[in-house]
Design a protein around this nucleic acid. Sequence first.
DNA 1: TAGTAATGTGCGAACATTCTAATATTATAC
DNA 2: GTATAATATTAGAATGTTCGCACATTACTA
Lengths: 92, 92
Amino acid sequence: MDADRANEWADLLKAFAHPTRLQILAELGKGTRCVTDMEDILPVTQVNISQHLTVLRNAKLVDFAQDGALRCYYLSRPKLVEGVLALISADH
Amino acid sequence: MDADRANEWADLLKAFAHPTRLQILAELGKGTRCVTDMEDILPVTQVNISQHLTVLRNAKLVDFAQDGALRCYYLSRPKLVEGVLALISADH
DNA sequence: TAGTAATGTGCGAACATTCTAATATTATAC
DNA sequence: GTATAATATTAGAATGTTCGCACATTACTA
């Protein structure tokens, strides 16, 4: 594996590698969710969720559709995300 | 996803999330390698490789067989490792 | 247009990771 | 047992990540 690819892939994997972000990704695997939906489920602040969503957006793992004041987030690469979660899950 | 599982999985993914470690894992995907083999391939010091191998060992992604002074490293969960690499690779 | 709900941003402290340099350990060969 | 090859460990500086706080923005509603 060449160094460029290794860097790119590592950046992508870093986006996965946080418990809150994993929970967000798992939740979005069930369907579109807005930030308040996630606030109801996760034991962290709105600000923190928003920060993690920024990381996930930068990694192009999620995107959103604006609906009035709401931002409806969804997985932009569901196969990748669900594949990774399934692999790890299978390994236990 | 419950918090315990999220933490556990995040720890595992952190082990993947470094360019040098990804290159080590990819190399071990081709077969057993000792540390000097990796030194020949990677542009980093022996010490640094050893440190990254420690991280990978702690995550139970690799293990080694001692052969005299050599330590022959191999993937202890090849399906997981190769699965993750294949998924990311497919996504490009 | 003032108020409020939903979400985002910038900053800085706390914490974690990575790398380098020096040194240690272990096994073999002489 | 001394030398050498292979690998690991320790310590500390540099760097990166995360989080809380305060505040900003945007869109709706009264």
